[in-house]
Every structure is written in C-alpha cells, then in structure tokens.
C-alpha cells in the first residue's frame, strides 16, 4: 500500500530546476501512463520557475505555478492557476480555478472559479462563474446558455403583492417620481 503511494508523483511536486524559457509550443499527448494518472486524480504541475511562451494544450488536469504567455487549451480538463501562477493568455478549459493572476480572456465549458486573492483581467465566458470575496476581477462575464434564455425569472411584480407590501410598510419605497 505504501509502496504504491511512493511510486505516484506528489500532488504538488517541488518546482523543477530553473529552466530557460521553454519551447514555443508545448503539447501533452494523452499517453497511457498519463491517462492512468488522470484516472487516479493526478494532475500535471508547472512549477513556479517555469516560463512558457506559446501554445499549451493537453488532455489532463493542469496546475500552473509559473508564467505562461500565449494560449492554453485544455478543453476536457481542469486548469488551476496556482497562487504563484501568472498567465497572460487566452484560456480555454472545461473548468478554470484561479488563485493567481490571469490577464486574458477565459472560456470554460463548465465553470470559472476565482478564489480569494485570485485575479482576472479579461472577459469570462462560462455557464457557471464563482467570484470569491477578495478576488479581483475586471472585465465582462458572459454566462452562456442555450438560446440565452434565463433559467429562472424574477417573480413577476404582481400588483396585489406590491400593494400588500406597500401597505405593510407605508413609508418604505414611497413612490416619489413619475
């Protein structure tokens, strides 16, 4: 049991040795062993000393603690920008969790989650968006849904209800204008 654990990479391995800017394009083909790791909840970690310029794409969950400039595409997987991560890129993923800094547009097919101290400067397109208290966000949010129709409408301002509430609080919300 313990032996098996030792063979598995730690969830947050130590940062790799300082690296020169990586190759312009990095892709991560879904090798069989990687698929096994993904199946076991494993994800790939880009350490904080790593700088990548170019296109980053793959088919397993990815945590970025380093710097990435360009484009990130993980359409079926979860991208986590760690607290030390700094991204200047267009991001496409299934889910995006931001604890670091992102400058660029973020598109997720499932969810974008900006955690406390996370920062996004750019436009977000995702059906679900969570922005924590203390997070920084500057941009627009497009919660796309099929046909753009609302999931739940505001209760219609029924005249009877409005009248009842006005009667309950006569001075509250007194209409003073046309």
């Amino acid at each position: 049991m313990w032996k098996r654990d030792e063979s598995v990479k730690p969830a947050t391995p130590p940062a790799p040795a300082p690296a020169a800017p990586a190759a312009p394009a990095v892709s991560m083909p879904p090798a069989a062993s990687e698929r096994r790791h993904q199946h076991m909840g494993e994800n790939v970690n880009i350490g904080k000393s790593v700088i990548i310029k170019g296109e980053l794409s793959g088919s397993e969950d990815l945590t970025i603690e380093g710097h990435v400039e360009g484009r990130i595409e993980l359409k079926e997987n979860i991208l986590t920008i760690g607290p030390n991560g700094k991204i200047r890129a267009e991001v496409f993923a299934k889910s995006v969790i931001v604890l670091g800094e992102v400058t660029g547009n973020v598109t997720a097919s499932d969810k974008v989650d900006i955690r406390d101290n996370g920062s996004v400067d750019g436009d977000i397109t995702s059906p679900r968006v969570a922005i924590a208290e203390g997070a920084h966000f500057r941009g627009s949010v497009d919660m796309q849904r099929g046909g753009g129709k609302p999931a739940a409408k505001a209760p219609a301002p029924a005249p009877a209800t409005a009248a009842a509430s006005a009667a309950a609080a006569p001075a509250q919300g007194q209409k003073v204008g046309a």
């Binding site: 968006v129 966000f137 500057r138 941009g139 627009s140 949010v141 497009d142 919660m143 849904r145 753009g148 129709k149 609302p150 999931a151 739940a152 409408k153 505001a154």
Partner: peptide, 11 residues
C-alpha cells in the same frame, strides 16, 4: 444577473 437575465455583464 446571469441566471435571471442570461446576460453579458461587465464590471
């Protein structure tokens, strides 16, 4: 606002 209106909201 996203749920109610299916809108694009800019902060």
């Amino acid at each position: 606002f996203g749920e109610q209106l299916g809108c694009r909201i800019r902060v």
